[in-house]
Design a protein around this nucleic acid. Structure first.
Lengths: 138, 138
DNA sequence: ACATATCGTCTACGCCTGCTTACGATCTAC
DNA sequence: GTAGATCGTAAGCAGGCGTAGACGATATGT
């Protein structure tokens, strides 16, 4: 047979990565989407909920539930935008930042282990190519 | 911020690949899962339905519907296994092979275009690394 | 002042998912 | 031959998903 297709390989690898992330997030009491939201929050400042939904790819009505829970657990706050009070600006609390940082470290360690068997040059090229591809079709 | 995480990059790229595959499969009257099934069928010979479910990662009870439709459209046949008549052996018909080959060609062209901007050495390393990673944790 | 649009929220719809249970047909072990 | 396991199938369940419609609060254009 031919070389397996990109979609096939990506879905397999994706499944593996998610399987390895799950115990880490479970330990922190986070769901996948919570983590995506926290990450997006750390990377962009003062996003409105609509912007946050767009950034994470989550439906805006689904996002609400995640924010409700994250806010109840004190990881996130929603504040009315002084410039346009229809908007609610979401931001990380120190507690949220702390949880996020701890998860991120564990996940980076997991990723390093996952990629450990690769030839170092290939690993660098892999990450470079992946990043370029994602940025390309933004 | 840090380098984006593997899971983040993979999900983005995956989304893009699937978005580009969809029109191709639509034109052939196939759903994503149909294509995955046909591909798995071409790569392994004489699988039982349970093996096919395992190979594609689809739930065995969900697979039934796909096979029903593919069989109704003459792309696939189910035959009782002479060695164990509980099993049903699934195989591609010539028509199924033809449809699959046409889709595969279109998808490979799409992938080539997607990867076209990469540095050739990076592209080769990317594919090599991706394949190695998937085979690694099988 | 008034009409129109946007934002966040809630509710409901239909679709797809994996999981579970049950069933008949069939194989295997004893 | 009888008991138990396995295969494909059907049906039902809970949960996730995006979408759409409605609503109050708010902003904007005229």
């Amino acid at each position: 047979m031919d070389r397996p297709e990109l979609g096939f390989l990506l879905s397999r690898l994706m499944r593996e990565v998610m399987a390895r992330e799950k115990p880490i997030l479970d330990a922190a009491g986070l769901e996948m989407w919570d983590y995506a939201v926290l990450t997006a929050l750390a990377d962009s400042d003062a996003p409105t909920q609509a912007q946050l939904a767009a950034a994470t790819g989550r439906d805006k009505t689904r996002l609400i539930g995640n924010l409700d829970r994250l806010e109840a657990e004190g990881m996130v706050v929603r504040q009315p935008d002084p410039a346009d009070r229809r908007n609610r600006i979401v931001s990380l609390t120190p507690a949220g930042s702390r949880v996020l940082r701890r998860c991120r470290e564990a996940i980076e360690a997991m990723e390093a282990e996952l990629l450990a068997d690769l030839d170092p040059a290939d690993r660098a090229a892999f990450q470079r190519a992946l990043t370029a591809l994602v940025e390309n079709d933004r």
